[in-house]
Design a binder for these strands. Sequence first.
DNA 1: GCAAATTAATGATTTATTCAAG
DNA 2: CTTGAATAAATCATTAATTTGC
Lengths: 230, 230
Amino acid sequence: MINNQLLLLCSPRSSRWNPTPEQLLALEELYRRGIKTPTAQQIRQVTALLRHFGKIEGKNVFYWFQNHRARERQKRRRELMSSMSQSHSNEQRQQSWTNNLISSIQNKESAGGLRNLSLEGEQQNKWTLSNCTILSDQESSSVLQERMSMVESNSSKQPGVQSYSATPTSQPPCANPTVTLIYTTPLDCHHYYDYGMVLTAPHICKGEETRETRTLELFPLESDNLNGFL
Amino acid sequence: MINNQLLLLCSPRSSRWNPTPEQLLALEELYRRGIKTPTAQQIRQVTALLRHFGKIEGKNVFYWFQNHRARERQKRRRELMSSMSQSHSNEQRQQSWTNNLISSIQNKESAGGLRNLSLEGEQQNKWTLSNCTILSDQESSSVLQERMSMVESNSSKQPGVQSYSATPTSQPPCANPTVTLIYTTPLDCHHYYDYGMVLTAPHICKGEETRETRTLELFPLESDNLNGFL
DNA sequence: GCAAATTAATGATTTATTCAAG
DNA sequence: CTTGAATAAATCATTAATTTGC
């Protein structure tokens, strides 16, 4: 049947492939050097070359890489998972940490009823603070008043003072639910970053000088947040 | 400044965030489980929980997801592209056996100009043989005609004879470039496995009996392939 | 020592996800 | 929104390592 340029192989009865040491070494080396998911063509070539060292088919190479990827991931996951359960108190199951994380994240009510506010500036140096979330009245609310000194912008816009404030919609147990942010420079000179709780003052590039970014971050106080802060 | 339910963090003027392995694992796990673009609330919770394992801010989480989405897309795109285009230059570096292996694998031209054919059955027992590769005309092409006897399927489909053939697009030095595959049983009764060169006839489970898998493998003939066969 | 029995590794298969093209 | 291709995850199955009793 081997009459020309195509070779036909019919896998012999049963018995799975067992890589020779040379084959194994080569496959590992390839993997280490970056061939993680070989193309069909690469599989063909590897198969042809490794046939030097013993019986081997393309599907063996294919499966080897597939399994190797999976088990490397697995190994890495297990290691990290166990290191997590160590630092986390005494967990019984390894998956529970992640499961707890997932469920607590996916449980929309677990954060205690947040409220959304939206602020928007109206000058030419316009900026937006959207989805500014503060705790519900049920939790005791707070006043945050912070002055954030900003380095001078390289934009031609004039530095100035802008002040915005917001109050939650319901008042009763809410002592003085005002949030005031005062900036001496508009935030839009390069960029701002806002997904509901963080504003970033842009880093400043003036001539060749680059100063670093400052971040002002607000988030609800949970017991977990207190490590090292209280 | 920590006077109530809000916590204020000012990022120290230090280098950028580097996720700890635990943080990275958790983020990947979340992503894998479907949190692709977390809400502000989710980011807050993830940040709080991951602070167990090291310094982290909300913006780090935000940016991580943003980058991860982008890079996953990128990866997909790149894979798709590379599977379509095939052109690269030669490597000359040859330091070891593995290096030769690597470079010969990464050299897309070394397989001698493959051509892709695609066959598709049209009956109800449809099956597909995609990317069936045969050598270019430059090499002498060949006729392969093989009958593959299959064990009886446990599916209710009737075993039958199906024949498909294909011819390359250019002829001149190409004697009789026909590939014909005849199956006595459709290949889709359980699965087929195809990454460009291998079709696997499913193993058959009939009652308690299990018969083994048969593999029909086609690949281009290279000098390396001949060991022990010619 | 050495097999039968048991366990650990790993090859092979099936199932579920994901991405994106139609 | 559906569907096909690709691949990751989960699982099955076989081989090698090893333990164990004699």
